[in-house]
Design a protein around this nucleic acid. Structure first.
Length: 231
DNA sequence: CCCTGATTCGC
DNA sequence: GCGAATCAGG
């Protein structure tokens, strides 16, 4: 069997999908497990959680002198014909951290998406509740990879113990956010609601504006992205 | 023993 | 480029 484009594509998909080399070889048929691994290496898509390479914390092997010297009967007396000395970090960067986290079932708390270019000032306005409004140039943020993770409800910290949290919201309390989502003391107003509105009287004043009669309306504000936050 | 991926090296 | 042989860890 030869490596047609189709078979290579299948190999890549299965390999990156987490299938073992044996499974891939069986699915492809006509090739051995070693063939799959060898091809995967040649394609450059190696580096997956390997039982061999798993630990790196041990820098003191028991037998440092005679270590990785694969004995080949025909090449026993042959000198090593290595073009480059041993220190060859040809292993590409791996997603070992993420894989390890996934394998351990670790729960990683959600974090607000950081600004990817902090050195370059960007025009950003902040809406009520603290979310960042997007500018025209921000329409295509790199989609954060969402690895499958087990999500566990976060424990509210003591600083929000007596405040109105997300689960405390109802039709009767003001849903006006206080602080920024993701901050430890983020909560909601919680005051008795202005009947018919989702906010209390005070925050209704911030959320809604009276409709002015025609002709006396103000010209629309020229602020491009919503303007500064008003609190 | 089984499994895994990594690596080497003759072909 | 291919893959069997081999290594090394789980």
């Amino acid at each position: 069997m030869s490596w047609t484009d189709e078979r290579i594509a299948t190999l890549q998909k299965l390999w990156e999908g987490g299938s073992t080399a044996s499974q891939i070889a069986e699915k492809l048929g006509g090739v051995s497990r070693n063939a799959v691994i060898g091809k995967a290496h040649r394609l450059g898509l190696k580096s997956r959680p390997s039982p061999v390479k798993a630990n790196d914390k041990n820098a003191a092997p028991k037998k440092p002198a005679t270590k990785a010297a694969p004995k080949k009967p025909a090449a026993a007396a042959q000198p090593i014909r290595r073009a480059t000395p041993p220190p060859s970090p040809k292993r590409p960067p791996s997603n070992a951290v993420e894989l390890a986290a996934r394998a351990a079932g670790e729960t990683i708390p959600m974090q607000p998406i950081p600004n990817k270019s902090p050195d370059m000032p960007r025009i950003v306005s902040v809406g009520p509740g603290g979310f960042l409004r997007q500018g025209p140039g921000d329409q295509q943020p790199p989609i954060p990879p969402a690895p499958p993770r087990r999500l566990v409800p976060a424990k509210p910290g003591p600083e929000v113990a007596d405040k109105t949290g997300l689960l405390d919201l109802s039709d009767k309390v003001c849903r006006w956010p206080m602080g920024h989502p993701g901050e430890p003391d983020f909560h909601f107003c919680g005051t008795e609601v202005n009947p018919g509105f989702p906010y209390c009287v005070e925050h209704c004043g911030r959320a809604f504006q009276a409709q002015l009669p025609r002709g006396s309306r103000r010209p629309p504000p020229p602020l491009p992205f919503g303007g500064p936050r008003v609190r």
